[in-house]
Amino acid sequence: MGANVQVCWEKAARYMEIEARYVNCDEEHLFLNPEKAIELVDENTIGVCAILGSTYTGHYEDVKKMNDLLEKLEKETGLFVPIHVDAASGGFVAPFVAPDLEWDFRLPKVVSINVSGHKYGLCYAGIGWAVWRSHDDLPEDLVFHINYLGSDQASFTLNFSKGAAPVISQYYNLIRFGYDGYRNIMENLYANTEYLAKQLVETGWFKLLSSLDPALGLPVIAFQLVNDRPHHFNETDVSHVIRERGWIIPAYTMAPNMGHMHLLRVVLREDFSRNRCDLLVADLKATVEYLAKQDKTHMEVHRASRGKWQTLFDKLPKHKVAAKEEVASGKVC
């Protein structure tokens, strides 16, 4: 799996004592690179995890490419390695706006898929789904049969008693919206995402890291400050200041081996209107202009202070030159 996996995968690997083999990200691949992933596969590999909607940037990983490489590997070596698709976010998005994208059971190596109803399934937190290709892909010895409620019931969960409200809410949404309803919602989200992204870029302060193509990623905008204009503030500063205007925009670093890359992320949901896009852009622009003004003021004070010290140094006797150089270098003050 890519080093950009959600922390739940790291937890599962550690708790179940599974050796996790991470494919490191780089500047050109901010998510799983199938060519690098296939190099880590051997006779001990129990599966490959492909993400349909990376937490960091919203990108879809290339499940089709991974499937083709694993099929080729099986023909050459006889190794059977299946794919699990973590479609926590994209599972309720891609089918409605990119129906031709192959990432699901159309690919023979995909044996299981998970999706979260509380994301783009439009439910409250607490509901998620797992689907297997067939009964053969879910070993019977992992399923418990109980009759506490008066009849045989198959149980494949880590807990037993749990409220049914999230399940009912998902059932309600599926009936209420249907395929056309979900498609309309997702198409509207992408329209607003493209509009917001364009406005952010036009401020001149930001550049995009995510994709606006519905076949390549979620209606998510991952962006960072441009490097071609001088400034001494970063994405974390932007996140802190814009909170004063009521927005909570996370600032974070990329996958572990790319901790030098900072970015901000905006996730668009059903209620994120065009008007809200305009408000967010206006507040972001005001935020960076405020930080730029503070930055400029700080640098002017710094230059004035250095000028005073330089004047003082120039008046020092020649035998104090060494001391002058030490102070100038910052060794002493």
Rank of each mutant, 00 (worst) to 15 (best):
R176T: 13
I242A: 08
E140D: 12
R265I: 02
N188M: 05
L138A: 07
N114K: 05
G181F: 00
L32N: 05
V5K: 08
I38E: 02
V267L: 07
V23T: 11
V167I: 10
Q153T: 13
H298Q: 12
F96I: 09
M1E: 04
L138W: 01
L32W: 00
D213T: 12
R245S: 10
V63L: 00
F144E: 15
I113Y: 00
D278T: 08
K324D: 13
R303H: 09
T57E: 04
K296N: 13
L291H: 01
L174H: 08
V327S: 09
I127A: 04
T45H: 03
S161W: 08
G128N: 09
D180Q: 06
W9V: 04
L73I: 06
K119E: 10
A164P: 00
M186T: 11
S211R: 08
S273D: 15
A164G: 15
A197D: 08
V115L: 11
S329R: 15
N188K: 09
F160Y: 14
N44A: 10
K109M: 04
A322E: 14
L189P: 03
F96N: 07
K119Y: 07
L70K: 02
V110Y: 00
S273I: 09
H59G: 02
K207F: 03
K162I: 15
L263K: 03
V301R: 11
I18N: 00
N4A: 15
E10V: 03
E19N: 10
H84V: 06
Y179H: 12
E289Q: 04
V332N: 12
P256R: 14
L158P: 01
S134K: 04
A87M: 07
S155D: 12
A94L: 02
L174T: 10
M1G: 06
H231S: 10
E39M: 11
L196N: 01
Y179C: 03
K308A: 14
C333H: 10
A12D: 00
G204I: 09
P139H: 05
D68S: 14
Y182A: 07
T45N: 08
D283Y: 09
T157G: 13
Q6N: 14
N184P: 01
